[in-house]
Computed example of a mutant assay.
Amino acid sequence: MAQSLLTEQPRAAEADLVRRAVGKDEAAIRSIIQTNNRRLYRVARSIVRDDSEAEDVVQEAYLRAFSALPEFRGESSLATWLTRIVFNEALQRRRRRVEQPVAQPNPPPETQSQVIPFPFAGHRTVDPEHVIAQREIFRLMERAIDDLPEDFRTVLVARVIEDMSIEETADLLGLKPETVKTRLHRARRLLKSALSDHIGPLFSDVFPFDGARCGRMTEALVKRLLISA
């Protein structure tokens, strides 16, 4: 009984949020968008493999979703419902791109969105060299995920990056749960192999102590030695 009540409470809260959004309540609309933005962007990005196009997909999907929101019946969670809309929109966008290829210039690096934003560990100050190294690892991860076959890439993004359950992922992709498990296993093996090929040569530069860090310590040590001399 207690578990049933816990399940009913989120559903009731979500139903109220939907009702308010249908009534054009700005706070409710913002809440839905902000809660689901990251998942929807990543799912779209896993299919279209382009940052700006993934943003376009998500925006178009939101427009479709909010226009259909009065018909939302809560048979699945709102997040799952939105994810299906984004998934289908991304597939349609990719088909149109294949049928009518259009060359589009890439946005400058400083305006590109991060595909998989990993937070820095802890709250300590990170020196510029460390930031640059982490950004390079991000790029390697993104490139390796982009290079996965789509069947494996979409499963990996849904299960590992967005932490969707096996059942949610199977429902989203129209697969059997066993197929999701198999594809996830293959995706992880391919990703591990790709990262090993790219990151292996970088191990010689791990834990760097040069540049600004080396300079700061050298200056501080020289001053202490001169003072004590």
Rank of each mutant, 00 (worst) to 15 (best):
N37P: 01
V58C: 03
V58H: 05
K176F: 13
E89I: 04
A133Q: 09
A15E: 11
P107R: 06
Q59C: 06
D51P: 04
V160Q: 06
K223L: 13
D163R: 12
R95I: 07
S228H: 06
Q59A: 13
R143D: 13
L175Y: 07
P117C: 09
R45N: 07
S165C: 05
Q104W: 14
L82S: 03
Y62E: 04
T169M: 02
L184T: 00
E75M: 10
H123G: 13
I199F: 07
V115S: 10
T154S: 00
A27T: 15
L40I: 07
D50N: 13
S113E: 09
V58A: 04
R38Y: 04
M1D: 08
Y62P: 10
P105V: 11
A61Y: 08
E60S: 11
D163M: 10
P117W: 09
M217P: 00
L17C: 08
R153Q: 02
F87S: 00
V58K: 05
S165W: 06
E168K: 06
G174Q: 02
I29Y: 02
A229Q: 09
E129G: 13
R95A: 09
G23E: 09
L82R: 05
L225M: 09
D25F: 07
R189F: 01
T182Q: 04
P108S: 06
D25I: 08
A27D: 10
E219C: 04
D171Y: 12
G174E: 03
A54K: 05
E53M: 11
E99H: 08
E53L: 08
G211M: 06
R153F: 00
V157R: 10
I166S: 00
R11C: 11
R64E: 15
P117N: 10
P10C: 09
L195N: 09
L190W: 04
A13R: 15
D16F: 12
I32S: 04
T7E: 14
E168I: 05
V155H: 02
R39D: 09
R213A: 15
V115C: 04
A12Q: 14
E60V: 02
L156W: 07
Y62I: 12
Q92K: 14
I116R: 00
A28Y: 01
E26C: 08
R42M: 08
Y41I: 14
L78S: 06
L173P: 02
A12I: 07
L184A: 00
R183C: 02
E89W: 03
D50E: 13
A212K: 15
R189H: 06
A212D: 11
I227A: 14
D171E: 12
L226R: 14
K223D: 11
A13I: 14
L82F: 01
P128H: 13
Q104N: 12
R124T: 13
I132K: 14
D197H: 05
D16I: 09
A2P: 09
V43D: 03
D205I: 03
V126D: 10
D146Q: 06
A2R: 09
V155G: 01
P208G: 10
R96D: 15
E168M: 06
E71F: 15
V18K: 15
D25C: 08
E129H: 11
V206G: 06
L63M: 15
M1Y: 10
V157G: 15
T182V: 11
A229G: 14
R42S: 03
W81R: 08
L140D: 05
Q112G: 01
G122A: 13
A144T: 03
L17G: 08
T169P: 02
M164C: 08
T80V: 13
